[in-house]
C-alpha cells in the first residue's frame, strides 16, 4: 500500500459545479416531496433522494475516469472502485426499501381509503387538554371520580391564584 500511495499522484476529488447542482436539485426535490402528506409523494421523495444519495456516493470517488477493469486501461487512470461498490450496495438497498414502502402505501390505501399520513390522535388529544387525564389521586373506578378529582386540583390551583393576586 505504501508504495502505491507514494507513486500515485493525488487527483483532486472536488465535485464539479454541474454535478453539485444536480445533486442539490435531487436532494431539494426529495426533501420537499418527503414533507408532503401523501404517502405516495413521500415514497417518490425517497426514491428521488435515493438517486441523489447514490449519485453523491459515486461522486465521492472523484471525477470521471476509466472503468476499473484490469487490463482495459492503465491502473493510474482507473476510477476509485470502492464508492462504486458502495453505491451498488446502496442502490439495491434503496430498491428494497422502496418496494417495502410501496407495499405499505398500498396497504394503507386499502385500509383507510387514501394514503395520507394522518396526525396522531392521542397527541392531538393531549395537546387540547387543559388538565392531565387520569389524575393521580383519582381512580376509584368511575368517571365521576376522575372528574371530581380534576376539579379539586383545579380548585386548589384557583385558590392559589386568588391568594396570590
Amino acid at each position: 500500500m505504501t508504495t502505491m500511495t507514494t507513486t500515485m499522484t493525488m487527483d483532486p476529488v472536488t465535485i464539479n459545479m454541474v454535478m453539485a447542482l444536480t445533486v442539490g436539485v435531487l436532494y431539494a426535490v426529495g426533501f420537499t416531496l418527503l414533507l408532503s402528506r401523501s404517502l405516495m409523494r413521500v415514497l417518490i421523495g425517497v426514491v428521488v433522494l435515493g438517486h441523489g444519495t447514490n449519485l453523491l456516493l459515486q461522486l465521492a470517488g472523484g471525477p470521471p475516469a476509466r472503468p476499473p477493469i484490469v487490463g482495459t486501461a492503465p491502473p493510474e487512470s482507473f476510477a476509485d472502485p470502492l464508492p462504486q461498490a458502495l453505491a451498488l450496495t446502496a442502490i439495491v438497498i434503496t430498491f428494497a426499501l422502496t418496494t417495502l414502502l410501496l407495499a405499505l402505501g398500498y396497504r394503507a390505501f386499502v385500509l383507510v381509503g387514501h394514503d395520507e399520513v394522518q396526525d396522531d390522535v392521542e397527541d392531538r388529544r393531549i395537546a387540547r387538554q387543559k388538565v392531565p387525564s387520569a389524575p393521580l389521586e383519582a381512580g376509584d373506578g368511575d368517571e365521576q371520580d376522575v372528574e371530581s378529582a380534576d376539579d379539586e386540583v383545579e380548585a386548589a390551583a384557583a385558590r392559589g391564584r386568588d391568594a396570590a393576586s
Binding site: T14, A20, G24, L26, A28, V29, T32, L33
Partner: peptide
C-alpha cells in the same frame, strides 16, 4: 426548506470533497 436542504447538501459535497 427542501431547497435549503438541497443547497446545503450540495455545499457540503463541494466543501468536503475539496
Amino acid at each position: 426548506l427542501g431547497t435549503v436542504g438541497g443547497a446545503a447538501v450540495a455545499a457540503f459535497a463541494v466543501v468536503l470533497s475539496g
